[in-house]
Design a protein around this nucleic acid. Sequence first.
DNA 1: AGGGCCGATGTAACCGGTTTCATCACAGCG
DNA 2: CGCTGTGATGAAACCGGTTACATCGGCCCT
Lengths: 348, 348
Amino acid sequence: MTSSVPQAPALLSRAGLRDVARRAGVSTATVSRVLNGSAAVRDDKRRAVQRACDELGYVLNAAARTLSSRRSMTIGAVVPTLATETFSRPLAAFQQTVHKAGYTLLVASFGFDEQVELKEVQTLLEHGVDALMVVGRTHDPKMWQLIERKRIPCVQAWTQDQERPSVGFDNVAVSRRMVEHLLDLGHRRFAMLVNEPHFNDRVGDRVIGTRARLAEAGLEIPAHWFMETTLSLEHGIAAMQHLMRGPERPSAVICANDLLAFGALLAARTLGVRVPEDVSVVGFNDFDYARHLSPPLTTTRVELEEIGANAGAYLLEALAGKPPKGPIEVTTELVVRGSSGPAPGFYG
Amino acid sequence: MTSSVPQAPALLSRAGLRDVARRAGVSTATVSRVLNGSAAVRDDKRRAVQRACDELGYVLNAAARTLSSRRSMTIGAVVPTLATETFSRPLAAFQQTVHKAGYTLLVASFGFDEQVELKEVQTLLEHGVDALMVVGRTHDPKMWQLIERKRIPCVQAWTQDQERPSVGFDNVAVSRRMVEHLLDLGHRRFAMLVNEPHFNDRVGDRVIGTRARLAEAGLEIPAHWFMETTLSLEHGIAAMQHLMRGPERPSAVICANDLLAFGALLAARTLGVRVPEDVSVVGFNDFDYARHLSPPLTTTRVELEEIGANAGAYLLEALAGKPPKGPIEVTTELVVRGSSGPAPGFYG
DNA sequence: AGGGCCGATGTAACCGGTTTCATCACAGCG
DNA sequence: CGCTGTGATGAAACCGGTTACATCGGCCCT
């Protein structure tokens, strides 16, 4: 065996705090203080430490730091999926916000499965996240048990909730407003086109708000005009085709997402259905393309970035010990464009 | 002081491995074995341990585990931004792939700033990621130093590279193919519309490929027809307007992204420029909407999910000790649709 | 000059797991 | 019956930081 040849530790970045301390001629405590700026250190020693770090190529070990200091400087986010704008854009803003405060983001996605969500939250807690962002306000109660045991701040984004911190808007109110707009235009025959899954509380609330406002006007959405479909352009097209091919047609199609509305407009064009003369189509989110569709899409504008940024800011405040706020509202606005018009035969 | 009231440790999830061991009547080593399935444990003890975990609400401490086992079961990803489909969709696939193997994803984004990228990689390494995915193949050399010191596998996604592991396609070759398609249609006056920033190597390679193929045909892109702009619909529109308002017009506009091409088509319609009769427009990516634009967009289809999934699979293999492969290619395909046609006055 | 204080520094315990190695019980075998 | 090999188990070192606490030297004040 020739394995007894000694290796210079620096070569492998095996250098630890103790190596740095030795090289700088100080104690590990002092090195730690320099690294954290946590206490006063004489200037010459500070520089000696910094030089030693450079020379050794010292890389901190966050696991050790987390273990001993009980803070990981990571923040977790659990989202249904990263693959759609609705979540990726706010998440990007969230990441930037917490990053400015020195936090690293841990991400998990759960594909709209509540049990997977629970599992992911557990994993993030095991990894010692200092705070957590989750989506929506319906979760397995065990999730809250876990979080409360860890006593870390947690914010629910994309929603409003009275019981626990939240950042979002009132999906019920927002959809009522849209229905009112359509009622004002004389519409009485409504269809709704929502993305799966139904137990998604954001979409669920919008359905509730829509139905509630319709009920107040003595109206309802017939079962065969309520369509639940995968969130994609193709599925939006297919659903609209289905709606337009029935013996009777709705005069207004309320889509839970601009992407579905985009599909609906495409389908209408293909079928020779005029928008808004024959049927009005409205969306949700005001994605970039909404104003450029033909006709331009009536929709509800949501400041997606604001959701992530505010959620991040809230958690940072909570970590700094500030008292929890009530629900934080983000901007929404009804944007009326060309895709919604008077119901056929209506002269308001 | 009344603070001497003892607290049951279970209430705060303060239960540690030792508490579990004590309650189950075994040693910490045995508990660890049960938790990891790392060695045989008699069945009755195993059950006792599991029960103790449940009863105490035991939550593992990943920092401690990482520290002592030297593996964190996390994988890092450093992307320019989470906010665009190009990165978020593959990242979602990446996350799912590594998650199946028990890994948690740590994400950092660097906003196309190489120095920030370096910083982020360092942070992820500090956090002890077991493997790393980066985007593209141009990085600060220090980044590789850091990674090599840690001796962890690292894959470059969205690109092909001969020196280090990569998952992607040859941007040069792909753009040459597109140019050939347009040359075949008789085009001679080319404009290019690319998203910032230019030092982005994926887009950079496409520019190189485009220019190279044009040069072979004795052509080039005039400086004022080479436009670099932010990746957004609005900017695509603005750039196309600018191109179409000049004294002379290109007969083909090559966009580095479908989103810009979408904008270009919108601008053309507004200006009364016919596509493809007056000008051909081509994109890149084949996003869902590409086939539904009017006219349908000629573009290069890229399997974005494949990038993330393959990158994840590669890293998992590397972690399992399999030998590194050469560059892994992902599928691309030239998709000819209605937005490209013969150059004006060309009868091929 | 002596006492008190304060700021800089070092010593060593500690965070909560994993893992090496020794030990032990027991089955199989001569 | 005693010896040996095997598989299960436990004791304790260890991972690499942070931090409570002790210490020390110097300054100010009376």
